[in-house]
Amino acid sequence: MHIASVGVSKFCFLFSLAFCGLLLLLIPALQPLPRQVDLPKPRPQARPAQVGTSEGLGKPIKTEISRNSYPKTGKGVRRIPERGIGGPQEYRSHDKLELKDIFIAVKTTRKYHKSRLELLIQTWVSQAKEQTFIFTDGDDKELQMRTGANIINTNCSAAHTRQALCCKMSVEYDKFIESQRKWFCHVDDDNYVILPSLLRLLSSYHHSQDVYLGRPSLDHPIEAAERVKSDGSVSVKFWFATGGAGFCISRGLALKMSPWASLGNFISTAEKIRLPDDCTIGYIIEALLEVALTHTHLFHSHLENLQKLPIDTVLEQVTLSYGGFENRRNVVGVVGGFSLAEDPTRFKTVHCLLYPDTEWCPKLKPRHRN
Rank of each mutant, 00 (worst) to 15 (best):
L26W: 11
K75L: 13
R83V: 15
I27E: 10
L33T: 09
P44M: 04
Y70S: 01
E55P: 01
Q36A: 11
G86Y: 03
K41Y: 07
L30T: 05
P71F: 00
Q50F: 12
E55W: 12
P81S: 04
P28F: 03
G58I: 11
P34S: 07
G58Q: 07
I65N: 02
P44A: 07
V51G: 04
P60L: 04
R47Q: 15
N68Y: 12
I27C: 04
Y70D: 01
T63L: 13
E82V: 13
P32G: 05
K72Y: 11
E64K: 14
P48T: 04
Q31N: 07
K72P: 05
P71S: 00
S54P: 00
S54D: 08
Y70R: 05
K41V: 11
P28W: 05
K75E: 09
R67H: 05
T73A: 06
L39N: 09
G86V: 03
D38L: 10
R47I: 14
E55I: 13
I65P: 00
A46Y: 06
G76Y: 02
V37G: 01
A29I: 08
E64A: 10
L39G: 05
L39Y: 07
D38T: 11
G56C: 08
L39T: 09
P32W: 03
K72H: 11
R79I: 02
G56W: 06
G74M: 04
I61C: 15
Q31G: 01
V51S: 10
P44D: 04
A49D: 09
V77K: 00
L39Q: 12
S66P: 03
V37C: 03
I85H: 09
P42L: 08
R79W: 02
K75N: 10
I80S: 07
L39D: 07
Q50H: 10
L57N: 14
K72D: 15
I65E: 02
S54K: 10
P40S: 03
I61H: 01
E82D: 14
R79L: 11
A46Q: 14
P42G: 06
E64G: 05
Q31F: 07
P81R: 05
V77D: 00
V37A: 04
R79G: 00
